[in-house]
């Protein structure tokens, strides 16, 4: 569904991402891993339009979306979350999720001023759908709590809820397990597995938590210094000497 071909991004003299290619197929969970500074988040920013690639192509569902504006890419169903938790701080949990359902609601100004019956009905449905999503990620008790009084783990869940609420076809999560303890991470892993096929068609995961990555991924892409180091099944990656070296360094001779 999502194809990345020879993607490159230079910041002045620094090649943050160079010549990276990989794909995400329908029904797949693909993880993007690599040491800090390997270019994982930059890759995500390039795919979602927050950065413009220096070279290379991103195609989604056969369409070339390279260099599109972020909102246009999101409207196509490529929805992402952010590494640094990003939510609408001033709103309630419900407000956050409801707002994120934006592209499924009315966008005509006239109908906003003079809502007819169908319009009111749609708005009620939106609210119910949003509440259902809040429920599904396990934040029911926090429904009407302001987002800025949530705990770190709850914020991560809210972030996922926002992304799901936007109705993604391909969901891209940037370090969803950062700041979660082992148990919470396992829970998250279980949730992610149930997502694919139900609510999203494919999942691209950027993550440092190896237990989670090995548990959920169908395929893993490893980046190092902006280049693709390896790609394969979790078992292959685990035993790949180059990957082990990138993470742990060379054994003393």
């Amino acid at each position: 569904m999502l194809e990345v071909e020879n993607l490159s991004k230079r910041f002045g003299g620094l090649a943050a991402v160079s010549d990276v290619s990989f794909g995400v197929k329908r029904g797949e969970i693909v993880s993007l891993i690599g040491p800090n500074g390997a270019g994982k988040t930059t890759c995500l920013n390039l795919i979602t339009g927050f950065y413009k690639p220096t070279a290379g192509r991103v195609t989604y569902d056969g369409k070339d979306i390279t260099g599109w504006a972020p909102y246009a890419i999101a409207q196509g169903g490529l929805i992402r979350t952010f590494q640094k938790t990003n939510v609408l701080k001033g709103l309630t949990v419900f407000g956050n999720v409801l707002t994120a359902r934006h592209r499924h609601g009315n966008t005509s100004l006239l109908r906003a001023f003079f809502p007819g019956g169908a319009q009111r009905q749609r708005e009620r449905e939106l609210r119910d759908e949003a509440a259902e999503i809040v429920d599904k990620v396990g934040l029911r008790a926090r429904m009407n709590t302001e987002a800025d009084s949530l705990s770190c783990g709850e914020l991560r869940l809210l972030e996922v809820a926002i992304a799901i609420s936007a109705g993604p076809t391909v969901l891209m999560l940037d370090e969803p397990a950062a700041g979660l303890n082992t148990e919470e991470a396992q829970q998250l892993g279980a949730t992610l597995k149930t997502l694919v096929g139900n609510m999203v068609d494919a999942l691209l995961l950027v993550e440092h938590n190896m237990a989670l990555v090995m548990d959920v991924s169908h395929r893993i892409v490893v980046l190092n210094f902006g280049r693709k180091l390896a790609e394969g099944l979790p078992e292959e990656i685990r035993s790949n000497p180059q990957v082990v070296e990138a993470y742990l360094g060379k054994p003393a001779a």
């Binding site: 972020p70 909102y71 999101a74 939510v87 609408l88 994120a100 934006h102 592209r103 609420s165 936007a166």
Partner: peptide, 11 residues
């Protein structure tokens, strides 16, 4: 509230 989140959900 947050331009980045807004854009990421298609606004």
């Amino acid at each position: 509230e947050n331009r980045f989140v807004a854009q990421s959900v298609g606004i």
